[in-house]
Computed example of a mutant assay.
Amino acid sequence: MTIDITPNSALLVIDVQKGFDDAAFWGPRNNPAAEENIAALMDAWQATGRPVVLVRHASVRPGSVLAPDHPGYAFKDFVEERRHESLLVTKTVNSAFYGTPDLADWLKGNGIGQVVVVGIQTNMCVETTARMAGNLGYEVLVPLDATHTFDLTGPDGLSLTADRLATATAVNLQGGGFARVVTTAELLA
């Protein structure tokens, strides 16, 4: 299956921060290949001169490993090493479109109509950003294998594994018409 990547397609790298390595805080995760796939996409985007946007979560929750005064706020080393000329957006909520500077203004100002969304967590900030991008009229591609998430417990003790949550995100995004779910290999082909 061929995927048409526009010359100015923006890679949105969501919340790939050291705090997400704290298994005691987050619990079990899925997709151990996520970081390798994110790095490969960052390398490909930079090699072709396409824009890369780094999004960082600045948590306002007390005790969060993603708080600006916590070491976990920093980008993971492989992202920091590839930072180069990337736009940096800082946010305190799930969507990168509610950050500083204004992502939608930047995309519009650069004539960008296609975004590829990768990062952490699949069912939280990645999914929320992808949904908003779809709502705003962008062509959205989500390589699910360049994301990861954690097991989660919801109402009445209902618990879902990270893999099941990622599957639900894929169904929500593509089935709901927000985005096309793809693989890293398809984007790199």
Rank of each mutant, 00 (worst) to 15 (best):
residue 5 I to D: 05
residue 5 I to K: 10
residue 8 N to K: 15
residue 8 N to Y: 06
residue 11 L to N: 02
residue 13 V to F: 00
residue 18 K to M: 09
residue 28 P to D: 15
residue 38 I to P: 01
residue 38 I to H: 00
residue 43 D to Q: 09
residue 45 W to M: 00
residue 45 W to F: 02
residue 50 R to F: 02
residue 52 V to R: 00
residue 52 V to F: 05
residue 56 R to P: 06
residue 56 R to V: 05
residue 61 R to V: 14
residue 63 G to K: 08
residue 64 S to N: 06
residue 66 L to V: 09
residue 66 L to E: 03
residue 66 L to T: 08
residue 76 K to M: 12
residue 79 V to G: 01
residue 85 E to D: 11
residue 89 V to S: 03
residue 101 P to H: 10
residue 101 P to K: 02
residue 103 L to S: 00
residue 107 L to F: 08
residue 108 K to I: 10
residue 115 V to N: 10
residue 119 G to S: 11
residue 121 Q to I: 14
residue 123 N to L: 05
residue 123 N to Q: 12
residue 123 N to F: 05
residue 123 N to V: 11
residue 124 M to I: 14
residue 125 C to R: 03
residue 125 C to P: 07
residue 127 E to R: 03
residue 128 T to H: 05
residue 129 T to L: 13
residue 133 A to P: 05
residue 134 G to R: 05
residue 136 L to Y: 12
residue 138 Y to P: 01
residue 138 Y to H: 07
residue 146 A to G: 05
residue 148 H to F: 15
residue 148 H to N: 15
residue 151 D to Q: 04
residue 158 L to Y: 11
residue 158 L to S: 12
residue 158 L to G: 14
residue 158 L to A: 04
residue 159 S to K: 15
residue 159 S to T: 08
residue 159 S to Y: 08
residue 160 L to G: 12
residue 165 L to S: 09
residue 166 A to M: 06
residue 171 V to M: 08
residue 172 N to M: 09
residue 173 L to M: 01
residue 173 L to K: 03
residue 174 Q to G: 13
residue 178 F to E: 09
residue 183 T to H: 12
residue 184 T to V: 10
